[in-house]
């Protein structure tokens, strides 16, 4: 080995760069002579500051033919080996949000909020981002308007122009209406108002129809066959089977 080094580097550099020989693995030839009091490679390397890794092997075992041998990590550490969703008791949240379909639109989350809230906020300058980027210039406190200040709010009589009235119009929910028509064209029932805020009514009507129930069941079966939750595929549910 040393001959090879001398042919490669032109000289047998006894001093060499510190720790260069310690990079080898396995016993090989005996290590080059070391300064006194240093028995092995691991003894040569002072512990690095801030090195929080496992400690190097015990001094008693230093004459063994292993270099850079470290203590094995402790087994009870919290790692990705455990199901972290179960560990932090988030199964309920997982089932709530991932078990069923979450409706896409903001108006489904805030059904009571008036106005067209599903449009991008950047369109009308009502985005929350703009509020962070350009915080409004305002004073420290809110004080009530006195008589003199209120004179500035005297309005003209009459209706507002059309474009400013949009705020109080709820967005039309055509989708469910259309769906309803499409599936049951012969249905003599009057068109139901497709409000998402009244799911109880809808459910009751649908459950009455046995044909619809059957169709739904078939659909569910088909869906399950293709879904990742199906036992044949890798489960995405955070149960004890998916992560042990």
């Amino acid at each position: 080995m040393t001959e090879m080094f001398s042919t490669l580097f032109g000289q047998n550099d006894a001093q060499g760069p510190p720790g260069s020989s310690s990079l080898g693995f396995g016993p090989g030839k005996p290590a080059p002579p070391m300064p006194q009091n240093q028995v092995s490679m691991s003894g040569q390397m002072p512990p690095q500051l801030g090195d929080e890794g496992p400690a190097l092997r015990k001094p008693g075992a230093m004459n063994e033919p292993f270099y850079l041998l470290r203590e094995l990590p402790v087994g009870n550490e919290l790692t990705g080996n455990t199901n972290l969703i179960t560990h932090y008791n988030l199964e309920h949240a997982y089932n709530k949000f991932c078990g069923k379909k979450v409706k896409e639109k903001l108006s489904n989350f805030l059904p009571e909020l008036p106005g067209m809230i599903d449009c991008p906020g950047t369109q009308d300058g009502s985005s929350l981002r703009s509020l962070i980027d350009k915080p409004p210039v305002c004073g420290n406190s809110f004080s009530p308007l006195t008589g003199a200040l209120l004179t500035g709010f005297r309005l003209h009589t009459g209706p507002l122009p059309e474009q400013y009235r949009l705020m109080h119009i709820q967005p039309p929910k055509k989708k469910s209406k259309h769906k309803h028509k499409h599936h049951r064209p012969q249905d003599p029932l009057p068109q139901e108002t497709p409000s998402d805020s009244d799911p109880k009514k809808k459910k009751k009507k649908r459950d009455d129809d046995p044909d619809r129930k059957k169709k739904k069941k078939d659909k569910k079966k088909k869906k399950n066959r293709h879904s990742p939750d199906h036992p044949g595929l890798a489960g995405s549910q955070p149960n004890s089977n998916s992560l042990r």
């Binding site: 991932c98 979450v102 599903d118 906020g121």
Partner: peptide
Amino acid sequence: FEYIDQGRNPQLYTKECL
């Protein structure tokens, strides 16, 4: 905030995070 600004349900963010 990005979800809300796009008119999307913020619960979708929680769902995607989980």
